[in-house]
Every structure is written in structure tokens, then in C-alpha cells.
Design a protein around this nucleic acid. Structure first.
Length: 729
DNA sequence: AGCGGAATAA
DNA sequence: TTATTCCGCT
């Protein structure tokens, strides 16, 4: 009976992870947690607390028991449950709030992306960024995870909070566990029900139309396939884009819709209200925290959809806004833009780098960093910081790259005027780090060829020693001098070409993460064709297979096939191995950190000397192994952003959103590339048919090109510095 | 407390 | 794949 129209069915069933995710037909733990979280009855057991999305399990045993009941796993206990929760870390659905017992935090970005990939952000028009001040000034615009009040976050319109609002009572029941049932009759529900304070809900008949939640719901799936579903379909459900908020018109029957629970679906978080200060307060990762509060202008208010068994959903409009914001963050925080690749409708906004302000900030950061390093490197807690980086986007001046693909580009994007300021010093800060051995290498080292060993020893001893010697980070920029003993990096390309300016040309390419770390690879591509480079930027160069990777493989071709560029692959990328941020943007993160506790979140450069014996490389000089010799080696630097565990916990994940959790294979490849030192002579990855699909970006990214160039310039500068260090080359 | 590897179930 | 189970390590 419920038809999309009148019953206001919420999202299609597939919108919910449990359904959409392969492998789990059953309710997923995070979902279950959410479920409990939204019920007052369980507030003594688990509840929102602390930061946005943060919740605390007050009674671990009980939660475990409930979970076990739901899953018909009577042996469940907190230890096991927590293990399951920990698996979410890598999935980035959840992370632990350190220092707080039994406290975890949801990463909504992840959930959103996973659940609402189809949202068309472009149609959002002005809705977000522009209008939404990045800095929370008052209620309404700022991000608040569990919204204190639905209205605070939801569109001014009807409370779509739960499209299926009218089902709330049902929902409740379902949420209570009706969805599951241990077939044997041991009703899981009962378990949950039991815990129920009985606060008014009785268990009752399932009102749900059609077939009940339990197995039901499947219907929608058939109607709209997740991947195929168009956003229109979604909107349709809500009454169409034009009238998003709209009262879905006659959500008639909703007549006696029960209101949202006394507590909003997402109970108020003990968070500060509109009082800006507190909002900013949260310890965000200096560099990347995506904590909604300060970075995202808007956050969706997730709602549990009563339908189909306690699934939760987001208001589409909200999601749009949120995603828009999120997209922004792709640029600002290094989120993988590829996360949106598969959704052509999503317009990727321009980076939101506050121009001057940003620069200033950056500079400030750089200075601070510098100061720190100069001071003796010991810094660390020292500089306490004030506020989150962004946020002051208010004034920007018109900028050249107005060629924005879309009208509503963010106001704040024109930023990145990096190169603009003439002799300014680069905000980059680097730290040398020996190239790690690839996993493969570590494991099967013995069997590996001499080559590898030489490699590791070479870089390890050679550049590495220098690295360790430096111990600290060196910043390059005009005032490199101040940086601690910088020096040993050779930045020039051995054989070749420096551009007219004598500077190496470098290419920045994202490297898919390595466990929680985001990095960008800076490669000297002096010998590459300029055009290609441009193209690369233009395309955003998703981490394409570094030529190098293939080089070492006996059969590169075999590898090549790995990236068939199929939708599926995309999907993989999106959800599991999202690419790192756009090339060149990463470095900025460096200076972004503002946080106090943030000790080094400096990018790390790994210099990888060219491997002499390598196939294409002329057997020239022996590896710099162990010798302090200042040999010029092809540059292959890798910027690596890294921050402390804490920070990581605090914020990293949100921004870096996705990555991690990627196929083992990829990781391996990555690792291998680590050991790789050849330049990408074949035009950087253009070779190989396996370059990942990036086409989608072409149009929309045109504008950012300028930006990239800037970055490039910046990098050049930085590189120049490096080369200065090795002029002798 | 918490983490994460390993093996395994569904 | 997402847990579940065990378990050693911090």
C-alpha cells in the first residue's frame, strides 16, 4: 500500500548500507548502533556524547547483549563487538575517540557517500557553500552532527526528517529489532524490547504496509537500482527537485505523523549550541579536520528511517548540501575527488582556499613551523593554536580563473594564490624519510632480487642516513636556510633536463594512501613532455599507475589489466581506494595545521635515488648507498602527510575520507612503487592502458587548472631549493 | 581498554 | 564482505 507518493517512502531500500552492501544481508553493526542511539530507551546504554557523531557506550555488556540478540549470537560480548567496531576504522565509518572509554565516533562523510552517492549536488545551486558561512556564526549554518534540533539543520521546510515519518511508530518497533529475528523463534526483538523502557511504544502489529520490513522492502530495490538510480528518482520520491523540501505534498496519510521523537532522531549532542567558540574548540586535526563544525558549512541530519526496518537516512536536500560541502572538502582537505567520479551529476566545486587569508594563514603556519624547527625542533606542544584554518573566506578578490565550469562555484575558491605572492616562501615543510620497504619486500625479502636489496640499502643508507641525520624536517622555501640541516636531498634530475630556469620539473601525483596516510608524490619529470604534464593536471591525474610500478614487474602488462576502467572499478575506487587529493593541493595541508597537540604533521619526503641497475637507467653511478655523496639522482619525492595518531583519530579520517581499505593488490603496488626509482619516462603513466578513469573530471576541473599550475609553481620553487642544495650536481 | 592479525563462518 | 571468535600485545 504505500506508494512512494503517499506513503512517502523514504529512500529506497538500497540506500541503506545493509542492503546495498554485499556480503551483509543482515543488519550491520553500525546501523544497529545508530538504531540504539536514536532510541531514548537505550540512552542509558549508549548515547551521543561529546563531539559530533561521537557516542559513548555506557553499558558495553548490554550493548553487546543487544547486538548479540539481534544477530542471534548469544555469545556476543563487548570484546567481540568492539572488534567489529574496529573493523570500521578502516572503513572509515567509525573511529575511536581516544582517551574516552567506550567512545567512538561516526564518520558521516563516509556514510553519506556510501548511502547517497546519487545526490546531485550540482542542482543544489546556490544552496550551499556560498551562502553558508564556513564559520559557524550561529545556529542554522553550522554543522552539527547530531543536530540539537532537527530544524536547526534541516531545510526550513517541512521536516523531511523522515520521509517516512508517518511510520515512525512502526519504525520504532522495527528499530527495536523487529527486523531481525532469530529464525528459531528466539526473537531478537524481544531482547530489545525487553530493554525498552516501554516508553510508550508497545510492540504491536506491524503496521507496515506491504509485507513488512523484515524481508520486505525489497521492492524498491527492484524499482531502482542503486547504481542506476538517478537522483531524480530520489527526488521524485520527495516530490521532485523543484520542491525538495516540499512537503511532499500530500504526504497525506501522514496525518498523524508522529512527531519526531521528543528527541530528535539524533539526540542532541551535548554540544555547544550556537555559541561559536565552543564549536571551534574541538580539537581538530590542524590540518585536515573535517569536523563539520569548522569546515563544512553544513551537515545533514541523518534520520532514521522508520521504514523498512530501522534504516536510517538523510534528507536529500540536506544531503545535497552536505555533499556539496563535502565536495568542497575534497579540495580543501584532500578528500578524494574521485569519490565523486562516478556521479557525473556532482559538480566538484573549486577548492576553497581562502586567498589572502589563506595565504596568510598558511604563511603563518609555515612560519610557525619554521620557528619550531629553528628553535630546535623540539616544538610540539608549543604552539597552541587557535582556530581552524578555514573560515575566513569572506574576502576574496576576483580572480583570474573565472572560467569556472559552473556558476555556483564557491566564492572562496579562488584561492591558492600561492605563486602569486612573489617571493614568498614556500609553506612546504618536508621531512626526509627513507623509503620504506614494500610489504612484499619485507616479507619476501630474501628471495627478492639483488636489485631490491640494493635499492633498499641504497636509499636506506644513503639518503636515509641523511634523513635521519636531519632528523627534523626541513622546509623549503626561500628561506630554506633556516631549516635545519637540510641539504642532502638531491633534487635535480640526474640526467636530464632542468628547465630553462634550471629547475627541475616536477610532477605531483597522488598516491593512493597507505593506511591512513595521504600522500602526494612529487616526481621530477623534467624530461617529460610538458604537454603531458598539463594534461595530467587537467585530468586531475588520479593516481595513475606510476610507470615505475610496472617497471619492476616482470610483466607490467599483466598488471595493467588491473584497472579495466569499469564501473566496478570505479566503485572500488570510490569506496575503497579513493584517490588522494588532487595533485598539488596536498602540500597545503602542511601549513594548515593549527592544532596544538599537533606535532608533526609534516609531509615527509622520501627521496628515492635512481636505481642504477634498472633496466632503462644507464648504468651510471652506483647508488648513493651509505655514502654521503651528493650524487644527483632523479627526483622522486613523496610528500607524505602524517599526523599523530591522535589527530588521526580526531580528524584525519573525515577528510581523508576514504582511502584505506583498498584491495591488497593496490597496496602492494604502492609499496612496490615505493621502492621504485625510475622516472616515468613513458609519459607518466599515460602509458599503460590502465590509467584509471578520470574523464569525468575533465570538464569540471578545467578551472582548477590554474590552481594546479600555481601549485606547480610552488613546487618548482620548492624543488629549486632542493636543487640549490645540490648545485654541484 | 584497545588494537589488530588470523582463521573462519555465513 | 561483514562479522565472529580467539588471542597476543600494549
Amino acid at each position: 500500500m504505500k506508494t512512494p507518493g503517499d506513503t512517502g517512502f523514504a529512500f529506497p531500500e538500497w540506500a541503506y548500507k545493509p542492503e546495498s552492501s554485499p556480503g551483509s544481508r543482515q543488519i550491520q553493526l553500525w546501523h544497529f548502533i545508530l538504531e540504539l542511539l536514536r532510541k531514548e530507551e537505550y540512552h542509558d546504554v549508549i548515547a551521543w556524547q561529546g563531539d559530533y557523531g561521537e557516542f559513548v557506550i555506557k553499558d558495553p555488556d548490554e550493548v553487546a547483549r543487544l547486538w548479540g540478540a539481534r544477530k542471534c549470537k548469544p555469545q556476543m560480548n563487548y570484546d567481540k563487538l568492539s572488534r567489529a567496531l574496529r573493523y570500521y576504522y578502516n572503513k572509515r565509518i567509525l573511529h575511536k575517540t581516544k582517551g574516552k572509554r567506550f567512545t567512538y565516533k561516526f564518520n558521516f562523510n563516509k556514510l553519506v557517500l556510501v548511502n547517497y552517492p546519487f545526490i546531485d549536488m550540482s542542482s543544489t545551486g546556490s544552496s550551499v557553500p556560498q551562502s553558508a558561512p564556513p564559520v559557524p556564526t550561529g545556529a542554522g549554518t553550522h554543522f552539527r552532527f547530531p543536530p540539537s534540533t532537527p530544524s536547526e539543520v534541516l531545510s526550513p521546510n517541512e521536516d523531511l526528517r523522515s520521509p517516512g515519518g508517518m511510520f515512525s511508530s512502526v519504525a520504532r518497533r522495527m528499530a527495536r529489532g523487529s527486523v531481525s529475528d532469530c529464525s528459531d523463534g528466539t526473537s531478537a526483538n524481544s531482547e530489545i524490547e525487553e530493554g525498552n523502557t516501554g516508553a510508550g511504544e508497545e510492540r504491536g502489529e506491524r503496521v507496515v504496509s506491504g509485507g513488512g520490513p523484515g524481508g520486505g522492502g525489497g521492492g524498491y530495490r527492484s524499482i531502482i537500482h542503486p547504481r542506476l538510480a538517478s537522483h531524480e528518482a530520489l527526488f521524485r520520491m520527495y516530490g521532485g527537485p523543484g520542491n525538495p523540501a516540499g512537503h511532499p505534498g500530500s504526504r497525506g496519510p501522514a496525518a498523524h505523523r508522529i512527531h519526531p521523537e521528543p528527541l530528535s532522531p539524533f539526540p542532541a549532542s551535548p554540544l555547544p549550541g550556537p555559541g561559536g567558540a565552543s564549536l571551534l574548540a574541538p580539537p581538530l586535526s590542524p590540518a585536515l579536520s573535517m569536523t563539520p563544525t569548522s569546515h563544512l558549512p553544513y551537515t545533514p541530519s541523518p534520520t532514521l528511517s522508520p521504514m523498512l526496518g530501522s534504516h536510517f537516512s538523510f534528507n536529500p536536500e540536506d544531503m545535497k548540501r552536505y555533499l556539496q560541502a563535502h565536495t568542497q572538502s575534497v579540495y580543501n582537505y584532500g578528500l578524494s575527488p574521485r569519490a565523486f567520479l562516478q556521479y557525473p551529476n556532482i559538480v566538484i566545486p573549486q577548492p576553497h582556499r581562502p586567498d589572502k587569508a589563506g595565504l596568510t594563514a598558511e604563511r603563518g603556519a609555515a612560519e610557525r613551523a619554521e620557528r619550531a624547527s629553528t628553535v630546535g625542533g623540539g616544538e610540539r606542544g608549543g604552539d597552541r593554536h587557535h582556530h581552524p584554518p578555514l573560515g575566513h573566506p569572506t574576502h576574496h578578490h576576483p580572480h583570474p580563473h573565472s572560467a569556472h565550469p559552473h556558476p555556483h562555484s564557491h566564492p572562496m575558491h579562488h584561492s591558492l594564490h600561492l605563486g602569486e605572492e612573489p617571493p614568498h616562501m614556500s609553506p612546504f615543510k618536508f621531512k626526509l624519510q627513507p623509503p620504506p620497504l614494500g610489504r612484499k619486500q619485507r616479507e619476501g625479502q630474501s628471495q627478492s632480487k639483488a636489485r631490491q636489496s640494493s635499492l633498499s640499502s641504497g636509499s636506506g643508507s644513503g639518503s636515509m642516513s641523511s634523513t635521519s641525520g636531519l632528523g627534523s624536517s626541513l622546509s623549503f622555501g626561500s628561506d630554506l636556510s633556516s631549516a635545519s640541516g637540510s641539504g642532502l636531498i638531491s633534487a635535480s634530475s640526474s640526467t636530464q633536463s632542468l628547465n630553462s630556469a634550471g629547475l627541475p620539473k616536477i610532477k605531483v601525483e597522488p598516491i593512493s594512501d597507505i593506511d591512513s596516510e595521504e600522500e602526494v608524490e612529487v616526481t621530477d619529470i623534467s624530461d617529460e613532455d610538458p604537454d603531458e604534464r598539463d594534461e595530467e593536471f587537467e585530468l586531475f591525474a588520479p593516481r595513475h599507475p606510476r610507470a615505475s610500478d610496472h617497471h619492476h614487474l616482470p610483466n607490467g602488462s599483466a598488471r595493467a589489466q588491473q584497472q579495466p576502467h569499469t564501473d566496478e572499478d570505479l566503485e572500488e575506487d570510490v569506496f575503497k581506494a579513493p584517490a588522494p587529493p588532487p595533485p598539488g593541493l596536498m602540500p597545503f595541508f602542511t601549513s594548515q595545521h593549527t592544532h596544538s597537540g599537533v606535532h608533526r604533521m609534516l609531509p615527509i619526503i622520501k627521496s628515492e635515488p635512481a636505481e642504477p641497475g634498472e633496466s632503462s637507467t644507464p648504468p651510471s653511478q652506483p647508488p648513493a648507498a651509505g655514502a654521503p655523496q651528493t650524487k644527483c639522482i632523479p627526483l622522486k619525492l613523496r610528500f607524505k602527510r602524517r599526523w599523530s595518531e591522535d589527530q588521526r583519530m580526531e580528524a584525519s579520517q573525515e577528510e581523508s575520507d576514504d582511502k584505506k581499505v583498498r584491495p591488497e593488490e593496490e597496496r602492494e603496488r604502492e609499496r612496490q612503487s615505493n621502492g621504485q626509482m625510475e622516472m616515468e619516462e613513458d609519459g607518466t603513466g599515460s602509458g599503460g592502458g590502465d590509467s584509471p578513469p578520470m574523464l569525468a573530471y575533465e570538464g569540471s576541473l578545467a578551472a582548477p587548472l590554474a590552481l594546479h599550475r600555481r601549485v606547480t609553481a610552488e613546487l618548482h620553487r620548492a624543488t629549486a631549493q632542493l636543487s640549490l642544495e645540490n648545485k654541484d650536481c
